Computed example of a mutant assay.
Amino acid sequence: MHRVLAINPGSTSTKFAVYFGNECVLRKTIRHPLEQLLRFKTIIDQFDLRKGLIIEVLQEEGIEVDSIKYIIGRGGLTYPLESGVYRVNNRMIEHLREGILGQHASNLGPILADYIALQIPGAKAFMADPVVTDELDEVARYAGHPKFQRISIFHALNQKATARLHAQKINKKYESLNLIVAHLGGGISVGAHKNGRVIDVNNALDGEGSFSPERSGTLPVGQVIDLCFSGKYGKEQIRRMVVGEGGFVAYLGTNNAQEVEKRVKQGDEKASAVQQALFYQVAKMIGEMATVLEGKVDGILLTGGLAFNKDLEKYIQQKCGFIAAIYTYPGEDELEALAMNALRVARGELEAKEYNK
Protein backbone atom coordinates (compact mmCIF):
# COMPACT_ATOMS: atom_id res chain seq x y z
CA MET A 1 0.00 0.00 0.00
CA HIS A 2 1.41 3.39 -1.01
CA ARG A 3 1.91 5.79 1.89
CA VAL A 4 1.84 9.55 1.31
CA LEU A 5 2.59 12.61 3.42
CA ALA A 6 0.93 15.78 2.05
CA ILE A 7 2.06 19.19 3.33
CA ASN A 8 0.25 22.53 2.87
CA PRO A 9 1.98 25.50 4.53
CA GLY A 10 -0.21 28.57 5.00
CA SER A 11 0.61 32.07 6.17
CA THR A 12 -0.22 31.29 9.82
CA SER A 13 -0.60 27.50 9.79
CA THR A 14 1.00 24.29 8.63
CA LYS A 15 -1.47 21.62 7.53
CA PHE A 16 -0.43 18.07 6.76
CA ALA A 17 -1.99 14.65 6.34
CA VAL A 18 -0.88 11.04 6.01
CA TYR A 19 -2.63 8.72 3.59
CA PHE A 20 -2.35 4.93 3.44
CA GLY A 21 -3.65 4.44 -0.06
CA ASN A 22 -6.94 6.35 -0.33
CA GLU A 23 -7.47 6.36 3.45
CA CYS A 24 -6.48 9.41 5.47
CA VAL A 25 -5.02 8.11 8.76
CA LEU A 26 -3.84 11.44 10.15
CA ARG A 27 -4.75 15.07 9.52
CA LYS A 28 -3.30 17.95 11.52
CA THR A 29 -3.36 21.73 11.48
CA ILE A 30 -0.64 23.48 13.46
CA ARG A 31 -1.44 27.13 14.15
CA HIS A 32 1.48 29.55 14.33
CA PRO A 33 0.88 32.57 16.61
CA LEU A 34 1.74 35.84 14.89
CA GLU A 35 4.28 36.75 17.57
CA GLN A 36 6.08 33.46 16.84
CA LEU A 37 6.31 34.18 13.11
CA LEU A 38 7.41 37.78 13.62
CA ARG A 39 10.71 36.45 14.93
CA PHE A 40 11.64 35.44 11.39
CA LYS A 41 12.85 37.88 8.74
CA THR A 42 11.57 35.83 5.80
CA ILE A 43 9.15 32.97 5.17
CA ILE A 44 12.07 30.71 4.26
CA ASP A 45 13.55 31.34 7.71
CA GLN A 46 10.49 29.54 9.16
CA PHE A 47 11.66 26.26 7.63
CA ASP A 48 13.27 24.75 10.76
CA LEU A 49 10.27 25.61 12.92
CA ARG A 50 7.71 24.05 10.60
CA LYS A 51 9.85 21.02 9.75
CA GLY A 52 10.46 20.27 13.43
CA LEU A 53 6.77 20.50 14.30
CA ILE A 54 5.72 18.15 11.47
CA ILE A 55 8.23 15.49 12.47
CA GLU A 56 7.35 15.90 16.17
CA VAL A 57 3.62 15.38 15.54
CA LEU A 58 4.23 12.36 13.29
CA GLN A 59 6.29 10.74 16.04
CA GLU A 60 3.74 11.61 18.74
CA GLU A 61 0.96 10.05 16.63
CA GLY A 62 2.94 6.84 16.20
CA ILE A 63 3.35 7.21 12.44
CA GLU A 64 6.29 5.17 11.20
CA VAL A 65 7.96 7.91 9.18
CA ASP A 66 10.31 5.55 7.33
CA SER A 67 7.27 3.78 5.84
CA ILE A 68 6.23 6.92 3.95
CA LYS A 69 7.75 6.91 0.47
CA TYR A 70 5.87 9.76 -1.21
CA ILE A 71 6.03 13.26 0.23
CA ILE A 72 4.22 16.02 -1.64
CA GLY A 73 4.11 19.72 -0.83
CA ARG A 74 1.85 22.48 -2.05
CA GLY A 75 3.57 24.22 -4.96
CA GLY A 76 4.92 27.70 -4.49
CA LEU A 77 5.93 30.67 -6.63
CA THR A 78 8.33 29.07 -9.09
CA TYR A 79 8.49 30.11 -12.72
CA PRO A 80 5.17 29.44 -14.55
CA LEU A 81 4.47 25.77 -15.30
CA GLU A 82 1.93 23.54 -16.98
CA SER A 83 -0.25 21.67 -14.53
CA GLY A 84 0.88 18.32 -13.24
CA VAL A 85 3.06 16.66 -10.63
CA TYR A 86 6.71 17.72 -10.52
CA ARG A 87 9.68 16.07 -8.87
CA VAL A 88 11.36 18.41 -6.43
CA ASN A 89 14.91 19.12 -7.61
CA ASN A 90 17.72 21.45 -6.60
CA ARG A 91 16.78 24.11 -9.17
CA MET A 92 13.22 24.27 -7.86
CA ILE A 93 14.48 24.55 -4.28
CA GLU A 94 16.86 27.33 -5.32
CA HIS A 95 14.10 29.31 -7.02
CA LEU A 96 11.72 28.91 -4.09
CA ARG A 97 14.37 30.03 -1.61
CA GLU A 98 15.21 33.05 -3.77
CA GLY A 99 11.53 33.89 -4.17
CA ILE A 100 11.92 34.56 -7.88
CA LEU A 101 8.21 35.43 -8.18
CA GLY A 102 7.74 36.49 -4.58
CA GLN A 103 7.72 35.11 -1.07
CA HIS A 104 4.69 33.09 -0.03
CA ALA A 105 4.17 30.40 2.60
CA SER A 106 3.52 27.85 -0.18
CA ASN A 107 7.20 28.22 -1.19
CA LEU A 108 7.97 26.08 1.86
CA GLY A 109 5.85 23.15 0.60
CA PRO A 110 8.36 21.54 -1.78
CA ILE A 111 11.29 22.50 0.48
CA LEU A 112 9.73 20.68 3.45
CA ALA A 113 8.80 17.69 1.25
CA ASP A 114 12.37 17.48 -0.06
CA TYR A 115 13.96 17.60 3.39
CA ILE A 116 11.72 14.88 4.83
CA ALA A 117 12.17 12.66 1.76
CA LEU A 118 15.95 12.89 2.11
CA GLN A 119 15.68 11.43 5.63
CA ILE A 120 13.80 8.35 4.39
CA PRO A 121 15.55 5.67 2.28
CA GLY A 122 13.86 5.40 -1.12
CA ALA A 123 11.42 8.28 -0.53
CA LYS A 124 10.57 10.82 -3.24
CA ALA A 125 9.45 14.45 -3.03
CA PHE A 126 6.93 16.17 -5.31
CA MET A 127 4.78 19.25 -5.76
CA ALA A 128 1.54 19.47 -7.76
CA ASP A 129 -0.54 22.08 -9.61
CA PRO A 130 1.17 25.15 -8.12
CA VAL A 131 -0.53 28.54 -8.04
CA VAL A 132 1.64 29.60 -11.00
CA THR A 133 0.15 26.89 -13.23
CA ASP A 134 0.04 28.50 -16.68
CA GLU A 135 -1.86 26.99 -19.61
CA LEU A 136 -3.23 30.24 -21.06
CA ASP A 137 -3.94 30.56 -24.74
CA GLU A 138 -1.60 33.18 -26.20
CA VAL A 139 -4.49 35.51 -27.03
CA ALA A 140 -5.42 35.56 -23.32
CA ARG A 141 -2.02 37.01 -22.34
CA TYR A 142 -2.59 40.40 -23.98
CA ALA A 143 -3.40 43.11 -21.45
CA GLY A 144 -3.73 46.08 -23.79
CA HIS A 145 -0.23 47.59 -23.63
CA PRO A 146 3.17 46.01 -24.33
CA LYS A 147 4.45 47.00 -20.88
CA PHE A 148 1.81 44.77 -19.28
CA GLN A 149 0.84 41.12 -19.62
CA ARG A 150 -1.95 39.05 -18.11
CA ILE A 151 -0.51 36.44 -15.75
CA SER A 152 -1.91 33.09 -14.67
CA ILE A 153 -1.98 32.91 -10.86
CA PHE A 154 -4.98 31.07 -9.48
CA HIS A 155 -6.25 28.26 -7.27
CA ALA A 156 -4.98 25.60 -9.66
CA LEU A 157 -4.76 22.77 -7.12
CA ASN A 158 -8.40 23.00 -6.03
CA GLN A 159 -9.77 23.90 -9.49
CA LYS A 160 -8.06 20.90 -11.10
CA ALA A 161 -9.01 18.54 -8.26
CA THR A 162 -12.66 19.64 -8.43
CA ALA A 163 -12.74 19.26 -12.21
CA ARG A 164 -11.27 15.74 -12.00
CA LEU A 165 -13.71 14.78 -9.24
CA HIS A 166 -16.63 15.98 -11.34
CA ALA A 167 -15.38 14.11 -14.40
CA GLN A 168 -15.09 10.93 -12.34
CA LYS A 169 -18.63 11.33 -11.00
CA ILE A 170 -20.11 11.60 -14.50
CA ASN A 171 -17.87 8.80 -15.86
CA LYS A 172 -15.97 11.08 -18.23
CA LYS A 173 -12.33 11.99 -18.64
CA TYR A 174 -11.39 15.46 -17.48
CA GLU A 175 -9.44 15.85 -20.71
CA SER A 176 -12.64 15.34 -22.75
CA LEU A 177 -14.67 18.10 -21.05
CA ASN A 178 -15.16 21.84 -21.32
CA LEU A 179 -15.80 23.20 -17.83
CA ILE A 180 -16.03 26.51 -16.05
CA VAL A 181 -14.67 26.17 -12.51
CA ALA A 182 -15.24 28.94 -9.97
CA HIS A 183 -13.10 28.77 -6.83
CA LEU A 184 -14.88 30.99 -4.31
CA GLY A 185 -12.85 31.58 -1.16
CA GLY A 186 -10.74 34.33 0.41
CA GLY A 187 -9.65 34.87 -3.18
CA ILE A 188 -11.81 34.14 -6.22
CA SER A 189 -10.70 32.61 -9.50
CA VAL A 190 -12.84 31.48 -12.42
CA GLY A 191 -11.18 29.34 -15.07
CA ALA A 192 -12.11 28.05 -18.53
CA HIS A 193 -11.03 24.39 -18.64
CA LYS A 194 -10.84 23.13 -22.20
CA ASN A 195 -9.91 19.46 -22.64
CA GLY A 196 -7.81 19.41 -19.47
CA ARG A 197 -6.15 22.82 -19.87
CA VAL A 198 -7.06 26.12 -18.20
CA ILE A 199 -6.90 28.32 -21.28
CA ASP A 200 -8.06 31.50 -19.52
CA VAL A 201 -8.39 32.51 -15.87
CA ASN A 202 -8.23 35.71 -13.84
CA ASN A 203 -5.13 36.57 -11.82
CA ALA A 204 -6.66 35.86 -8.42
CA LEU A 205 -3.72 37.23 -6.44
CA ASP A 206 -3.50 40.89 -7.26
CA GLY A 207 -6.09 42.47 -9.39
CA GLU A 208 -8.50 40.73 -11.76
CA GLY A 209 -12.05 39.54 -11.61
CA SER A 210 -14.64 39.71 -8.86
CA PHE A 211 -13.85 41.21 -5.49
CA SER A 212 -13.73 38.60 -2.73
CA PRO A 213 -13.85 38.53 1.07
CA GLU A 214 -10.41 40.18 1.22
CA ARG A 215 -9.39 41.23 -2.32
CA SER A 216 -10.57 44.13 -4.44
CA GLY A 217 -10.49 42.39 -7.81
CA THR A 218 -10.61 44.56 -10.94
CA LEU A 219 -10.63 48.26 -10.06
CA PRO A 220 -11.28 51.34 -12.25
CA VAL A 221 -7.76 52.05 -13.54
CA GLY A 222 -8.12 55.82 -13.82
CA GLN A 223 -9.23 56.11 -10.21
CA VAL A 224 -6.35 53.87 -9.10
CA ILE A 225 -3.85 56.10 -10.93
CA ASP A 226 -5.29 59.19 -9.24
CA LEU A 227 -5.10 57.49 -5.84
CA CYS A 228 -1.49 56.42 -6.38
CA PHE A 229 -0.42 60.02 -7.11
CA SER A 230 -2.64 61.72 -4.54
CA GLY A 231 0.17 61.76 -1.98
CA LYS A 232 -2.17 60.31 0.64
CA TYR A 233 -1.09 56.69 0.41
CA GLY A 234 2.16 54.77 0.13
CA LYS A 235 2.77 51.78 -2.15
CA GLU A 236 2.20 49.20 0.59
CA GLN A 237 -1.02 50.87 1.72
CA ILE A 238 -2.42 50.69 -1.80
CA ARG A 239 -1.25 47.11 -2.21
CA ARG A 240 -3.12 46.19 0.97
CA MET A 241 -6.24 47.84 -0.46
CA VAL A 242 -5.98 45.39 -3.35
CA VAL A 243 -4.95 42.27 -1.43
CA GLY A 244 -5.85 41.69 2.21
CA GLU A 245 -7.97 44.77 2.94
CA GLY A 246 -10.28 44.86 -0.08
CA GLY A 247 -13.66 43.27 -0.75
CA PHE A 248 -15.72 42.39 2.33
CA VAL A 249 -12.93 43.72 4.58
CA ALA A 250 -13.13 47.19 3.01
CA TYR A 251 -16.92 47.35 2.79
CA LEU A 252 -17.96 45.49 5.93
CA GLY A 253 -14.89 45.18 8.16
CA THR A 254 -14.67 41.39 8.04
CA ASN A 255 -13.28 38.68 5.77
CA ASN A 256 -15.65 36.10 7.26
CA ALA A 257 -18.19 35.23 4.57
CA GLN A 258 -20.33 33.30 7.06
CA GLU A 259 -20.60 36.40 9.23
CA VAL A 260 -21.67 38.43 6.19
CA GLU A 261 -24.27 35.81 5.30
CA LYS A 262 -25.57 35.95 8.88
CA ARG A 263 -25.84 39.76 8.71
CA VAL A 264 -27.82 39.47 5.48
CA LYS A 265 -30.28 37.05 7.09
CA GLN A 266 -30.66 39.50 10.00
CA GLY A 267 -31.73 42.23 7.58
CA ASP A 268 -28.47 44.22 7.27
CA GLU A 269 -29.10 46.16 4.04
CA LYS A 270 -25.46 47.14 3.46
CA ALA A 271 -24.25 43.55 3.90
CA SER A 272 -26.99 42.40 1.53
CA ALA A 273 -25.98 44.92 -1.15
CA VAL A 274 -22.27 44.03 -0.93
CA GLN A 275 -22.92 40.29 -0.99
CA GLN A 276 -25.24 40.72 -3.97
CA ALA A 277 -22.51 42.68 -5.78
CA LEU A 278 -20.04 39.85 -5.22
CA PHE A 279 -22.54 37.31 -6.60
CA TYR A 280 -23.13 39.59 -9.60
CA GLN A 281 -19.42 39.89 -10.39
CA VAL A 282 -18.88 36.13 -10.12
CA ALA A 283 -21.78 35.53 -12.53
CA LYS A 284 -20.22 38.01 -15.01
CA MET A 285 -16.91 36.14 -14.84
CA ILE A 286 -18.66 32.85 -15.58
CA GLY A 287 -20.28 34.51 -18.59
CA GLU A 288 -16.86 35.68 -19.82
CA MET A 289 -15.46 32.17 -19.63
CA ALA A 290 -18.49 30.78 -21.46
CA THR A 291 -17.51 33.08 -24.34
CA VAL A 292 -13.92 31.79 -24.19
CA LEU A 293 -15.32 28.26 -24.59
CA GLU A 294 -17.59 29.43 -27.45
CA GLY A 295 -20.67 28.42 -25.49
CA LYS A 296 -19.68 24.74 -25.54
CA VAL A 297 -19.76 24.19 -21.78
CA ASP A 298 -20.28 20.77 -20.20
CA GLY A 299 -20.76 22.13 -16.70
CA ILE A 300 -20.23 25.04 -14.32
CA LEU A 301 -18.58 23.95 -11.07
CA LEU A 302 -18.75 26.02 -7.87
CA THR A 303 -16.19 25.24 -5.17
CA GLY A 304 -14.49 26.87 -2.17
CA GLY A 305 -15.91 28.13 1.11
CA LEU A 306 -18.43 30.56 -0.42
CA ALA A 307 -20.03 27.68 -2.31
CA PHE A 308 -21.72 26.64 0.97
CA ASN A 309 -23.92 29.73 0.59
CA LYS A 310 -27.21 28.53 -0.92
CA ASP A 311 -28.14 32.06 -1.96
CA LEU A 312 -25.00 32.22 -4.09
CA GLU A 313 -25.84 28.90 -5.73
CA LYS A 314 -29.40 30.09 -6.41
CA TYR A 315 -28.13 33.39 -7.87
CA ILE A 316 -25.63 31.69 -10.20
CA GLN A 317 -28.37 29.30 -11.30
CA GLN A 318 -30.62 32.26 -12.11
CA LYS A 319 -27.95 34.21 -14.01
CA CYS A 320 -25.92 31.42 -15.64
CA GLY A 321 -28.21 28.39 -15.78
CA PHE A 322 -28.84 29.06 -19.49
CA ILE A 323 -25.14 28.38 -20.20
CA ALA A 324 -24.85 24.89 -18.70
CA ALA A 325 -25.81 22.75 -15.72
CA ILE A 326 -24.40 23.99 -12.41
CA TYR A 327 -22.76 21.65 -9.90
CA THR A 328 -21.69 22.61 -6.39
CA TYR A 329 -18.64 21.13 -4.61
CA PRO A 330 -18.46 23.31 -1.50
CA GLY A 331 -15.26 23.73 0.47
CA GLU A 332 -11.83 22.61 -0.58
CA ASP A 333 -9.44 19.87 0.46
CA GLU A 334 -5.99 20.73 -0.79
CA LEU A 335 -4.36 18.02 1.34
CA GLU A 336 -6.49 15.33 -0.28
CA ALA A 337 -5.84 16.86 -3.71
CA LEU A 338 -2.09 16.71 -3.07
CA ALA A 339 -2.26 13.13 -1.78
CA MET A 340 -4.33 11.94 -4.74
CA ASN A 341 -1.81 13.48 -7.15
CA ALA A 342 1.02 11.64 -5.42
CA LEU A 343 -0.95 8.39 -5.53
CA ARG A 344 -1.53 8.80 -9.28
CA VAL A 345 2.25 8.89 -9.71
CA ALA A 346 2.80 5.98 -7.31
CA ARG A 347 0.29 3.83 -9.21
CA GLY A 348 1.77 4.65 -12.59
CA GLU A 349 -1.34 6.52 -13.73
CA LEU A 350 0.65 9.72 -14.19
CA GLU A 351 4.27 10.47 -14.96
CA ALA A 352 5.97 13.10 -12.83
CA LYS A 353 7.50 16.01 -14.72
CA GLU A 354 10.89 17.68 -14.36
CA TYR A 355 11.28 21.30 -13.32
CA ASN A 356 13.86 22.71 -15.73
CA LYS A 357 13.13 26.43 -15.85
Results as ranks from 00 to 15, higher is better:
Ala257Gln: 09
Asp298His: 13
Ile7Glu: 03
Gly109Glu: 09
Tyr19Leu: 07
Gln317Val: 06
Leu38Phe: 05
Ala192His: 01
Arg3Leu: 09
Val243Ala: 12
Glu261Trp: 09
Ala257Asn: 06
Thr328Ile: 10
Val65Ile: 15
Gly209Asp: 01
Arg141Asn: 05
Gln275Met: 14
Asn202Gln: 06
Val57Ser: 07
Asn341His: 14
Pro121Val: 14
Ala182Ile: 04
Ile326His: 07
Leu278Lys: 08
Asp137Gly: 13
Gln258Tyr: 08
Leu53Glu: 15
Tyr174Ile: 01
Lys314Met: 08
Lys357Thr: 03
Val132Trp: 10
Gly185Glu: 01
Val201Leu: 02
Lys173Val: 02
Arg344Cys: 07
Gly187Lys: 05
Thr303Lys: 09
Glu135Ser: 02
Ile153His: 01
Ile326Phe: 10
Ser106Ile: 06
Phe308Asp: 04
Phe211Ala: 04
Asp129Arg: 11
Ser67His: 04
Met127Val: 14
Gly196Asn: 08
Leu278Ser: 10
Glu261Pro: 01
Pro110Thr: 12
Lys353Val: 09
Leu306Thr: 02
Lys319Leu: 10
Ser212Gly: 06
Ser230Thr: 08
Val221Gly: 09
Arg347Lys: 14
Gly122Tyr: 11
Gln103Trp: 04
Tyr315Glu: 12
Ala283Asn: 03
Lys51Val: 05
Lys15Arg: 13
Gly299Phe: 13
Gln237Asp: 08
Gly267Gln: 09
Asp200Cys: 00
Phe322Trp: 15
Val25Pro: 10
Gly304Glu: 05
Pro110Leu: 09
Asn22Ala: 13
Thr42Arg: 12
Met1Leu: 12
Glu35Leu: 06
Lys232Glu: 15
Val260Cys: 03
Ala346Gln: 02
Asn171Cys: 07
Ala277Gly: 14
Glu208Phe: 02
Thr218Gly: 10
Thr218Cys: 13
Gly10Phe: 11
Gln159Asn: 13
His32Trp: 11
Leu112Tyr: 00
Val249Tyr: 03
Lys314His: 11
Leu177Val: 02
Ala324Arg: 04
Ile63Pro: 02
Tyr315Thr: 12
Lys169Val: 05
Ala346Met: 10
Ser11Val: 07
Ile199Cys: 02
Ala271Tyr: 03
Gly247Arg: 02
Gly207Pro: 05
Ser83Asn: 15
Gly76Arg: 06
Lys69Tyr: 12
Val297Met: 07
Val292Arg: 00
Ser212Trp: 05
Ile225Cys: 12
Gly186Trp: 00
Glu82Tyr: 08
